[in-house]
């Protein structure tokens, strides 16, 4: 335990730094999963999680309960993600509203991402669903998808773009 002065000038005991760090790391695991589910790759997810951790340091030391720490970390994660997309693609926060706000922090490593993807794919036409399933869920190359769908690589490439755009338009309630 360490001690320092509070607002009234009294000496108060603070939790050991290692405890605060352990709590933060557990929460940051969920932040990492949240971010990964939106950027789809480890390198970007690590960079953004690190940004969240550094931004949140002043809060983490205030002895707040884990639930409050989580709320702040996820708020920061949303902000960092918003900045990531807006910088790279010129998206405004309002355009990202559904993607960032609709997702609530969860206490475990949920299947949120996979479940959401399944619902989105289910809402697409057969061809669009098939091309995205083969490409993203089964990891087929364009050539393999073309062979499977009895089409050409060029046609599959166009279909992939259209399918992704159609998927982006799917709105999931709740």
């Amino acid at each position: 335990m360490t001690s320092e002065l509070n607002d009234s000038g009294e000496v108060v005991e603070l939790p050991a730094a290692s405890n605060a760090v352990d709590i933060a790391l557990d929460e940051l695991e969920m932040v990492y999963a949240f971010i990964y589910a939106r950027v789809g790759n480890r390198a970007d997810a690590e960079d953004l999680t690190q940004q969240v951790a550094l931004k949140a340091i002043p809060r983490l030391r205030q002895g707040a309960p884990p639930s409050a720490i989580r709320g702040y970390l996820f708020a920061t994660a949303r902000s960092v993600l918003g900045g990531f997309w807006s910088t790279r693609l010129g998206l405004s926060e309002s355009e990202l509203h559904e993607d960032l706000v609709m997702a609530k922090p969860t206490s475990g490593y949920s299947q949120e991402s996979a479940d959401r993807a399944a619902l989105i794919l289910a809402a697409l036409s057969d061809n669009y669903r098939r091309v995205l399933e083969l490409r993203f869920l089964h990891g087929y190359s364009l050539k393999e998808v073309a062979a499977e769908m009895r089409s050409t690589v060029g046609a599959v490439k166009v279909m992939q773009l259209r399918a992704l755009r159609a998927a982006a338009k799917v709105r999931l309630d709740g």
Binding site: Y36, L89, Y109, Q111, S113, R116, F136, L164, A167, A168
Partner: peptide
């Protein structure tokens, strides 16, 4: 953005 989400879904929930 949708491609990033689907790529993530393929990997399932991730830990650090």
């Amino acid at each position: 953005i949708m491609a990033a989400r689907l790529a993530a879904a393929r990997q399932g929930p991730q830990r650090m």
